[in-house]
């Protein structure tokens, strides 16, 4: 995620100082992407150089300079809202690389790698769910909405990872059962669901 577009989107609402941009960015993204002030000023410098933002008047008594969008900056942010995020460059994921190597490197217990990861991912999912169940302290409704949306993205991503790990495990089981037939008595059966009586309520 480019900080550039984040800052442009915020400046489209009103002119802001660097420190204000930093705190607004963090509040609106649920604190997921902490920024340091240096990063904000470096980016503002580049945006000013490229003619996308300009300073508003002189520095105030504390030496702070507010920035606003230029026409070109406004056009850039409008394009960003309407264009999809580019997904063609898949980010490198350590877990994917780890499992791809695990199934090819001799001596690695792949099922164990899957199990350990799944337990860790479910624990992470549980911590995210607990966080979601608590309202963020001292935030207004708009920020709470943003915070929840970001947390839910992490929750769905963790769930997708668990599903993928289940799939990898089932795939491993299939390949090993093709290599070594399971005796009939050991085959897993369907769950038995006893009929329900009025007691089962």
């Amino acid at each position: 995620m480019s900080v550039k577009f984040g800052l442009l989107a915020l400046l489209a609402t009103e002119p802001m100082y660097g420190a204000q941009l930093r705190s607004e960015f963090e509040a609106r993204t649920g604190g997921t992407w902490p920024l340091n002030v240096g990063q904000v000023y470096t980016t503002l410098g580049r945006l000013e150089r490229d003619g996308l933002v300009e300073s508003v008047g002189e520095p105030d008594e504390e030496g702070r300079i507010a920035y606003r969008l230029t026409d070109s900056g406004e056009a850039t942010i409008r394009t960003w809202w309407t264009a999809p995020v580019d997904r063609s460059e898949t980010p490198r994921d350590e877990l994917v690389i780890k499992l791809a190597l695990a199934v090819t490197v001799p001596g690695v217990h792949v099922a164990h790698v899957v199990q350990v990861q799944r337990a860790a991912t479910v624990r992470h999912l549980r911590d995210l769910t607990r966080l979601k169940a608590q309202a963020p302290p001292g935030s207004d409704a708009r920020h709470e909405h943003a915070w929840r949306l970001v947390l839910e993205n992490h929750i769905f991503a963790a769930e997708a990872e668990v599903r993928w790990l289940d799939h990898v495990e089932a795939d491993l089981a299939r390949s090993s059962s093709r290599a070594r037939p399971v005796p009939a008595g050991e085959r897993p059966g369907r769950d038995s669901v006893p009929s329900r009586s009025p007691q089962s309520i």
Binding site: Q115, R118, A119, T121, V122, L125, R126, L128, T129, A133, I155, F156, A158, E159, V162, R163
Partner: peptide, 12 residues
């Protein structure tokens, strides 16, 4: 898994 996230513990 999303719903299991509400539990304290998950058994596989």
């Amino acid at each position: 898994a999303r719903y299991a996230g509400w539990a304290d513990r998950v058994v596989f």
